[in-house]
Design a binder for these strands. Sequence first.
DNA 1: TGTGCGTGCACAAACGATTGCAGCCAACTT
DNA 2: AAGTTGGCTGCAATCGTTTGTGCACGCACA
Lengths: 341, 341
Amino acid sequence: MERVKLIDVARAAGVHPGTASRALSPEAGSLVSAETARRVVRAAERLGYVPNTVARGLRTARSFLIGMVVPDVTNPLFPPMVRGAEQVLSRAGFTLVLTDTDNDAETERRQVEQLRARGTDGFLIATARWEDALVQQLADAGVPAVLVNRNSSPHRLPYVGGDERTGVAEAVEHLVTLGHRSIVHLAGPQDTSTGRERASAFRHALRQHGLPVGRGQVRTCAAYSEQAGLDACTRLLSSSVEFTAILAGNDLIALGALTALAGAGRRCPDDVSVVGFNDLPLVDKLTPALTTVTLPLHEMGALSAQILLGAIDEPGRTGPVAQSLLGIKLAVRGSTGPARP
Amino acid sequence: MERVKLIDVARAAGVHPGTASRALSPEAGSLVSAETARRVVRAAERLGYVPNTVARGLRTARSFLIGMVVPDVTNPLFPPMVRGAEQVLSRAGFTLVLTDTDNDAETERRQVEQLRARGTDGFLIATARWEDALVQQLADAGVPAVLVNRNSSPHRLPYVGGDERTGVAEAVEHLVTLGHRSIVHLAGPQDTSTGRERASAFRHALRQHGLPVGRGQVRTCAAYSEQAGLDACTRLLSSSVEFTAILAGNDLIALGALTALAGAGRRCPDDVSVVGFNDLPLVDKLTPALTTVTLPLHEMGALSAQILLGAIDEPGRTGPVAQSLLGIKLAVRGSTGPARP
DNA sequence: TGTGCGTGCACAAACGATTGCAGCCAACTT
DNA sequence: AAGTTGGCTGCAATCGTTTGTGCACGCACA
């Protein structure tokens, strides 16, 4: 039941452990004769040798561990990204460690510290705030890290996200084509890049279509949550602002808005059209099915992992950091319809 | 920027590294004088010493790593369990490594192997099949492991799940109370404990109510998926079996069934009542909102982690293994209604 | 004052792999 | 045929901690 170790393999092959190590390593494989290498490899297979990652990590100062930090695994936005990242990483021999910060900065700090004590080789950060101490710290320390989905203000780390501006532009275009002239944006929190970007893109898109951007037409929600969406929409309804369409900061906000609208007797899409963001599972099964902007979450996870691997491989690089935006699509469904004349 | 290590702390405190180690370890803390201990601790704090987990792991043969194996993170069933487990584990100083097997046995084997090479201290398995080679293997090897959500046939490992039988009983009771006499079960795959257990409990519940269990009244779906539910329900509709209610193996199957019913012009709940299992996010927002059995997923994750920690602490134990069932509740919503006379 | 005992610390050997260095042998050059 | 080169392999140090062992010192007791 004892784990077989390198020295056992070496003995079985009649060589020194050092030689066995080289024979099994693709890197230094050329330093050993083909004949010996074959003998060692065969012995290793026969004995079922599995190298001890911990021992190797101690010597090489690499852990082959990647930490991925998400605010809440329970939010369906993240699992696809995790999956994409894991596939790329595990193919490259890395193990992904997922940690859930529960949206709490202190928890996040602790988790990352613990991971760093493990000698984690790099981080995938999906929790970035617009101004983020942790992100700064990682950048300062020169720890390989990539931001996913949410960016952070001084672009010091690579970032992978969706092309928010285009997504918003398409959504607005869609609404305008349907005849809507009074569109309101229920924006996400402005301490996230997505919240800021979408709001800014919204204003820009309106101007492009020659529509005025009035006061109270962009309303910031306290969080990316259903409750926050409900609150914001309720306030909107009790204000004097007229509107026939809502662009929500994400699907949860859209759901809250739908609830608020229903409560106020406004029908969707007959009275008000609603567009969401993210295309969460099941929003296509609602009545009406939610029109929403879909992000390539899986690809975002995969690409961020690839970029991270690149950064790990050349630690000395000081070139410009990449900000990658992936294509986005609008899924037109039942929650948007022609504006009432 | 160099990481400060134990020897630095020792030097700063004017003691030998061995002594410093003991001073910092609560275990052996009594082997060193209070005065020295204080000096060492202060030095450690001042220098910002963070012990190297890898080196420690090499010496102690413990990694403080727990692997959690799920078939698909993207399935909303799992994230809450992951979350529950992570909270317990991280409090105990362990790091949770999540791996997604993509429902593939070979991937699963590879992942677990990789984790074992890391000296992972224990496993949380959420992928168990009724007959499962991996589970057998872990049990044989004496690796601490706990099954979550799905059990495996010879109960050799501890298991934590929901009280399926009671859940099914309540669902059937609910339907019978509504006047339904012809109830069909679209069962999940029979190579999973949940699929078997729910089907068996369904038969039992019918008998309890004096209802006959006819042929074709329990139909097995090929997978826990929407497509499988749609297929099974389509076949059901084209058979001669009469029914006014469906108990689905889980929510996805229920969704598929709803689609099939709608396609056949049968309305829910007017013509057919449907009950699901799991209470996935948003199923309460559908029209009609899905009546479903809710599992305490978070608690399942937390409890399984606790049991695992216990197993790790006393490796020698050979007592009986615990099979823990947590309470379950029926969420009555719009998809169930009175049977038509 | 000598023996005995206990406390507190230093010493060094692990843990299992990687890797710079040195040595050996064979082959090739001149 | 002697010298040189170069390809393989063995040796031993090393990564940072933990922990068994033993020494030294101080105190108490006879």
